[in-house]
């Protein structure tokens, strides 16, 4: 197998993902969505369940257009703009944030709440409270938006409007931001490898 869905991973471990995995899946998923946007293939669709998120052997993370959602919602990426399931980038980000939170909350009771580190809670809060761009925004648009920097010159994202903003927030979580791509890919690669190891072990026992 070359990929596992986040749902399979959660069910196999029967426990929530850890925080670093949450950061990594957010970063890698937004990275692939952004790349799709640049190639003009973005079929923007809300993430409906963990089954829609696919973690690949090489550490890539993609949204599975047809994963679990009913065939009526599925349509080819080439479908026209008017098709009902298309939605804005911010809606995809919001739905991703919700699913990632649910993966962090997996197995907890309704009245229990997991204590998240403030930066991760802030990331999810930002993702689930996105702000509509003023129309100039489209995916892959590399506008030099005026950005805020903190005292040690680190770029601070205050509102999330694009996949790029999510990636910036995830990168800011690391000691060396420039290492974000390698680091988060390695985390997802390890998540896939460890899960496959467990999967094979359990299959052998069965």
């Amino acid at each position: 197998r070359n990929a596992l869905s986040l749902e399979e991973i959660l069910k196999l471990y029967n426990q929530p993902i850890n925080e670093e995995q949450a950061w990594a899946v957010c970063y890698q998923c937004c990275g692939s969505l952004r790349a799709q946007g640049r190639r003009g293939e973005s079929s923007k669709r809300r993430v409906e369940s963990p089954a829609d998120i696919r973690i690949w052997r090489d550490g890539a993370v993609t949204l599975d257009a047809g994963g679990g959602s009913s065939s009526s919602a599925r349509s080819s990426p080439r479908a026209g703009k008017s098709e009902h399931s298309r939605c804005r980038e911010t809606e995809v980000i919001e739905s991703l944030g919700i699913i990632i939170y649910k993966a962090l909350d997996y197995g907890l009771k309704e009245n229990e709440e997991r204590e998240l580190s403030p930066p991760l809670e802030q990331l999810i809060d930002h993702m689930t409270n996105t702000v509509e761009a003023d129309g100039s925004q489209d995916e892959g648009y590399e506008a030099l938006d005026e950005c805020v920097v903190d005292e040690n010159d680190k770029e601070v994202v205050e509102v999330v409007q694009s996949y790029r903003d999510v990636m910036k927030l995830c990168a800011a979580h690391l000691p060396t931001q420039s290492d974000a791509a390698n680091h988060y890919q390695a985390v997802c690669r390890a998540l896939f490898a460890e899960t496959m190891e467990l999967y094979t072990f359990l299959a052998r026992i069965k």
């Binding site: 939170y101 909350d105 204590e115 809060d125």
Partner: peptide, 23 residues
């Protein structure tokens, strides 16, 4: 159940879990 690797607290009305469950 083994010791979990994270802390669990009582769900709070103004917490992120409540906000997300309303979405």
């Amino acid at each position: 159940k083994g010791k979990s690797l994270y802390n669990i607290k009582q769900k709070h009305d103004s917490g992120i879990k409540a906000k997300i469950s309303m979405k």
